[in-house]
C-alpha cells in the first residue's frame, strides 16, 4: 500500500499530465460528434457576455452592407406581396403559408462568427428565455446558415453548414432529386451535395434549395447554385459543388425557424424508426 502511495507521489506530475490530457481528448471527441459538446461551448453567460459586448462595437463597422442586405430582402418580399398569388415564383413564402406546416420566425443577431476551422460554430443572442431549443433551423435573408445546438438562458450556439458534423437534406430546385449537403472543409464559399442520383438533370448554374424532408427547415429555402459536378467513384451518384448564396464571412442578422408541428411529426415518425 505504502509503495502505491509512494509511486503516486513520485510520479504526480506525469499522472496529472495524463489525467489532464485525457480530459482534453474526451472533450475533443465529444466536439466531433453531433450535439454532444454539452460542457465546452460558448453559450454560457461569460463567453456570451464577452462576445456580446465586443459585437456591440463591431456591429457598427458593417452597418452599411447589412442595410443593403435588409433592403434587398424587403424589395424581394414587397415584390411577392404585390404580385397576384398564382404567379408567385418564390416557394420560400408559398410553402410557409400553404403546405400546412406552420413555421415561426424569430429574428436574432450573430455575435460570434467563425468560418476558418473544420467544425465552425456560431453564437447568437437568443436563448432559452426566447424559447430556443436544439435543432431549430437558422437562415439568413439569402439562404440557410445552420442548426441550433446548445442553448443557455440568453445565448445559443449554431452549428454552421461549414461544420463536418452536420448534414442537411437538399434538392435541385427544378426537379425533386434530393441528397445530403456536407462540407469538405476546403473553402467557406463552397459546400458539397452528395447522393444525387445519376439520372437527375444536373446543370451548372442550377439552384439548390432545402428539401423539406427533415422537420428543421421548410421546403424551398435557397442554398446556392451548382458550380461544378462529377460522378463519384462508384458512378452511381453525383457529387455537386454548391456555391453558397450567403457570404459566410459576413453574417449579422439571421432568422431562427421553429417548426410548430415538430413534436407531433417526430412522435409520428418515431415508431417507424424503431
Amino acid at each position: 500500500m505504502q509503495q502505491i502511495i509512494q509511486f503516486f507521489i513520485r510520479n504526480k506530475t506525469n499522472l496529472l499530465y495524463l489525467l489532464l490530457l485525457f480530459i482534453a481528448v474526451i472533450f475533443t471527441i465529444q466536439s466531433h460528434s453531433y450535439h454532444k459538446s454539452k460542457f465546452i461551448n460558448s453559450a454560457n453567460f461569460i463567453t456570451g457576455g464577452v462576445y456580446n459586448s465586443a459585437n456591440n462595437v463591431s456591429i457598427y463597422f458593417n452597418l452599411e452592407s447589412q442595410n443593403i442586405l435588409l433592403q434587398e430582402e424587403n424589395a424581394r418580399l414587397n415584390s411577392i406581396y404585390h404580385t397576384p398569388n398564382d404567379t408567385i415564383d418564390n416557394s420560400f413564402i408559398n410553402d410557409t403559408v400553404y403546405s400546412g406546416v406552420k413555421y415561426k420566425f424569430t429574428p436574432a443577431q450573430v455575435i460570434k462568427n467563425s468560418y476558418s476551422a473544420k467544425n465552425n460554430v456560431l453564437l447568437i443572442n437568443r436563448g432559452k428565455r426566447d424559447s430556443m431549443k436544439q435543432d431549430f433551423g437558422v437562415v439568413t435573408p439569402k439562404g440557410i446558415l445552420g442548426i441550433v445546438d446548445q442553448t443557455s438562458t440568453k445565448f445559443a450556439t449554431v452549428l454552421s453548414i461549414l461544420n463536418t458534423n452536420i448534414k442537411i437534406s437538399a434538392q435541385l430546385k427544378n426537379s425533386n432529386h434530393f441528397g445530403s449537403l456536407m462540407w469538405n472543409t476546403k473553402s467557406p464559399q463552397i459546400v458539397q451535395l452528395n447522393e444525387i442520383s445519376k439520372i437527375a438533370p444536373v446543370k451548372k448554374g442550377d439552384t439548390i434549395v432545402t428539401s423539406g424532408r427533415s422537420v428543421i427547415f421548410p421546403k424551398g429555402i435557397p442554398i446556392g447554385v451548382i458550380k461544378d459536378y462529377r460522378l463519384d467513384s462508384a458512378e452511381n451518384f453525383y457529387t455537386i459543388d454548391v456555391k453558397l448564396f450567403n457570404d459566410m464571412t459576413n453574417i449579422e442578422y439571421v432568422y431562427i425557424i421553429e417548426n410548430i408541428d415538430k413534436d407531433e411529426i417526430n412522435s409520428l415518425l418515431k415508431p417507424n424508426n424503431e
Partner: peptide, 23 residues
C-alpha cells in the same frame, strides 16, 4: 500544468473547439 490546462480550456470554450487547445 493546471494553469496551462485552464488557459487552453478557456480558449476552447470561447472558440467552441472541444479540448484541442487544452491538450
Amino acid at each position: 500544468l493546471l494553469i496551462s490546462f485552464v488557459l487552453g480550456l478557456t480558449i476552447d470554450i470561447f472558440s467552441d473547439s472541444g479540448g484541442v487547445h487544452a491538450a
